[in-house]
Computed example of a mutant assay.
Amino acid sequence: MARYGMQYGPPQRSRVPLVLVAVLGLVLIVILAVGGVLLYQRLDEPDSAPPATKPSTADAVEFRRVLKSEQGQCPSPPSDTVVCDANGFRYTVGRVELNGAHVTEVKAAQNEGDPTWHVMLNLNSEGAEAFTRLTTDLAKKQPPLNQIAIVVGDQVVAAPTVQSAIPGGKVQISSNYTKKTAEELARRITG
């Protein structure tokens, strides 16, 4: 008796579906691994501010000595020698000693562990030398003559008291800023 087409043992299956499932599994593993790495890198970055930039014009930010400070209204139209802040203080100021042309970088920043934000300005070498000379001189004076007005547009954004020389060309503008207000000030400086 002849057996035609008879096969002994389990039927043979094609290996194509098995290979296809294995390839799709490897592709899925690669996609998940790349996604995990990208997510880890994103989570590892601090709450970052916009990219740092330079001031758009030289007069975008000015550093001036404070000659007098008092409560009062600002002159209208604005004066070159009397500038006000947002809190109603009038500052009689000296000449511009440094400006946006000396600033190489402006960025909103936050110190680790500190909930408040500030605006960081980096000065070029000429600006760093001038700022060191200015703060060295101001540190020897009594209030308000030891204050430096940082003027953005036609407003004093900070008028810190200088207690010692500040070398190194790094200027930090602080005033209990939030991330939003620090970024807004940085944008005002950079135009």
Rank of each mutant, 00 (worst) to 15 (best):
Y40E: 11
A52D: 03
G168L: 09
A128K: 04
P75T: 08
T190D: 04
L38M: 12
E62D: 11
P51I: 01
V27I: 08
Q7P: 01
N87A: 13
E45L: 15
P46L: 07
D44W: 08
G94D: 13
T53Y: 11
G100K: 05
V66L: 10
H118A: 05
V27Q: 01
E45H: 10
T181M: 08
F131Q: 07
V152D: 01
Q147W: 00
F89E: 10
S175D: 15
P51F: 00
K140I: 02
V83D: 05
V21N: 04
Q7C: 07
T81Q: 14
R188K: 15
C84S: 10
Q12D: 13
Y4I: 09
V23W: 06
G88W: 02
Q12W: 07
Y4K: 06
E105G: 10
G153W: 09
T135H: 07
C84Y: 03
Q163V: 06
T57A: 12
S175R: 12
A58I: 00
T132I: 00
G5W: 11
P51K: 06
L134I: 05
V156H: 13
V152T: 04
Q7T: 15
E183N: 07
E105A: 14
V151P: 02
V162Y: 02
R95M: 08
P167W: 06
C84P: 02
Y4C: 01
F131S: 03
P50H: 06
G127L: 04
S48W: 00
D59S: 14
T104P: 03
V16P: 03
P10M: 11
R188V: 07
A49E: 04
Y4N: 09
V23D: 11
K54D: 09
G25I: 02
P143A: 14
G169N: 04
V16Y: 07
N99E: 07
L28D: 01
V30K: 00
D80A: 07
S14Q: 13
V16G: 09
N176Y: 00
L28Y: 02
V151K: 04
A130S: 13
P10Y: 13
C84K: 13
R187G: 11
Q71S: 14
R13S: 12
S125R: 12
V96I: 14
V34Y: 12
L98Q: 04
V30W: 03
Q71G: 02
D44C: 02
V83H: 06
A128N: 05
F63I: 09
S125A: 13
V106H: 04
R187S: 11
P160Y: 05
A2P: 10
A108Y: 01
V21S: 06
S14Y: 08
T135Q: 05
Y177K: 02
A86T: 08
A58G: 06
V157G: 03
A52V: 01
P11M: 15
Q147T: 00
V34W: 12
T136H: 11
N176V: 00
T81P: 03
V156I: 12
P75R: 10
G88N: 10
T135V: 04
D85F: 04
E70K: 12
R42D: 11
D114N: 14
E70M: 13
R65H: 03
S175M: 04
K179Q: 13
E112R: 10
Q142D: 15
M120P: 00
V34A: 15
V162H: 05
L98K: 01
L18N: 05
T53F: 02
L98A: 09
Q142S: 15
V156C: 12
I166V: 13
R90T: 14
I150R: 02
E70A: 15
P167Q: 11
